[in-house]
Nucleic acid binder design. Structure first.
Lengths: 108, 108
DNA sequence: AAATATAATCGTAATATTGCAATATAGATT
DNA sequence: AATCTATATTGCAATATTACGATTATATTT
C-alpha cells in the first residue's frame, strides 16, 4: 500500500511522527546541523554545501518548513531560513518521558 | 528515484536519520508509548492495541529493533520487547544541541 | 505426535519518497 | 524593459514504504 492509516492514531501521535519523519533523512539532518552552526541560511548556501541539486534542496527545505522545524523569512530576492526551537522542545520532552520510563524498569 | 544518497553524508547523519525515520510513523510512536506505559510487550499485545494486522505489527517491531529503539528477548513461545534507553539519550542530546544553538540567536 | 499459540517471513498491491532536468516565478540590477 | 539571481514548481523515473493474506517456523500444551 504505502499509505499510513493516520486516522487510527491520535493527533499527538501523527504530529510527532510527522516531525520525526521530516528529520529522518540525512540531507535534512545535515541542513539542521548547518543551521546549528550558521544560525541561518538561504537555499543557495545548502546547495553549495550538499551534493544535491537545487531542486532537491528546495524540496527538503519545504518539508522541514511544512512541519515547523524551520521558518523562512523573505529577504528581498532570497529567503532566510532558520530553526524553530518550539518543535525541538516538543521532541525533547517526548524523549525525556521515554528515558524516564525506561530508567524505572529494566527490560525483561 | 526514492533512493537516499547515504554515501554523501556522515555516519552520524545517516544513523541519526535512520533512528528518527524509524520513529516517524504513528504506529511506531504508539508502540513506543505502549512500552512507556507497560514497560514491555509481546507482539500480540500490540496487535490487540492497534488496528493493524499481525504481519504489519511484526514488521513495525522489526524496524524499531533494527535501529536499536527496542530490544527483544525470547521468552519461551513469545518474544518480550522493551525500550532501549541509549538511543533516546542520543536523540535527546542532538535535540539539546539544537535548542541551545537556537536560543543563542534569534531568526533573521 | 497432533493440535495450539505466537510471531516471523514471503509475495504482492497501492502509495510515498527521492532526486533531477526543465521550467516558472519574482525580486534586483543594469 | 531586459537581464540576472535566487528559489519554487512540475513532470518524471527509480526505489522505498505500508499493509495484508497466506504461509512458515518454533515452542507449548494436550
Amino acid at each position: 500500500m504505502g499509505i499510513t492509516k493516520s486516522e487510527h492514531f491520535t493527533d499527538h501521535q501523527n504530529e510527532l511522527a510527522n516531525v520525526l519523519k521530516a528529520l529522518g533523512h540525512p540531507a535534512r539532518v545535515a541542513i539542521v546541523e548547518y543551521l546549528i552552526q550558521h544560525k541561518q541560511c538561504i537555499c543557495g548556501d545548502i546547495v553549495n554545501e550538499l551534493p544535491l541539486s537545487q531542486a532537491t534542496i528546495s524540496q527538503h527545505l519545504r518539508e522541514l518548513k511544512q512541519v515547523g522545524i524551520i521558518q523562512g523569512n523573505i529577504e528581498g530576492n532570497s529567503i532566510c531560513y532558520c530553526l524553530n526551537p518550539l518543535v525541538f522542545e516538543q521532541i525533547t520532552k517526548f524523549m525525556g518521558i521515554v528515558i524516564e520510563s525506561v530508567m524505572k524498569n529494566k527490560c525483561c
